[in-house]
Amino acid sequence: MIKAYYIFRKDLLQEFKTRFAMNAILLFAVVTLSAVSFAIGTFTARQEVLSALLWIILFFSSMSGLSHIFVKEEEAKTADTLKLVASASAIFLGKFLFNIVLLFLLEIIVVPLFIALMNFNVQNYLLLFFTLFIGSFGLAGGGTMVAAIISKSGAKGALFTVLSFPILLPVLVSGISATKIASQEQGWMTAYSELQTLFAFSVVIITASILLFDFVWNE
């Protein structure tokens, strides 16, 4: 576990030197957000449409940055050295931790902007926060694993979204549904099954990733 933390710190320090992933992901989010905002213009869209748009922005911005974590190791040819230092599961946990911090950062910046720009009324802020929190675990878990697969294959950029989208769709579907509920009513009970799905999916995908990562990493 301590090794996972070291890996996480190393990636964080490295990130602050270049700020590549952070810039890519945040700028992508801002660009998409303004594109959506221009497209909708002065008339306000319905809450259902807005909650779907929020998740689409979050999903595609995370797709632009999450793969960097493994691709950079392959590009700098540091993957083999990393193999010597730590076990596969420690590396996965460290990288996963980094990606989830990246996603939280993205959400902290994009979600308030979205609420302000798109006139998105939220009735239940706690539910929205909770949905985003659990959803991030699923997104980061699946995204990190697919990033590892991608970094080992030849084609790097294009395949990442294609491979992640179908796997991460349960997060997207139940996330959109829970966000819609958060924007429409105060209660928690109606969003219960969505939160359950999000939680179950995150647990399943993270467990499967930890078990399978060894085969990708030491290939």
């Binding site: 697969i149 349960p170 579907v173 999916f201 995908i205």
Partner: peptide
């Protein structure tokens, strides 16, 4: 190796589509 890993990863998400999403 990579496609086997992806296959298993995909297969664990299949129950969500077949059983859970249509129930919700």
């Amino acid at each position: 190796a990579l496609s086997a890993v992806y296959d298993i990863l995909a297969f664990v998400t299949v129950p969500f589509f077949i059983f859970i999403v249509p129930r919700i």
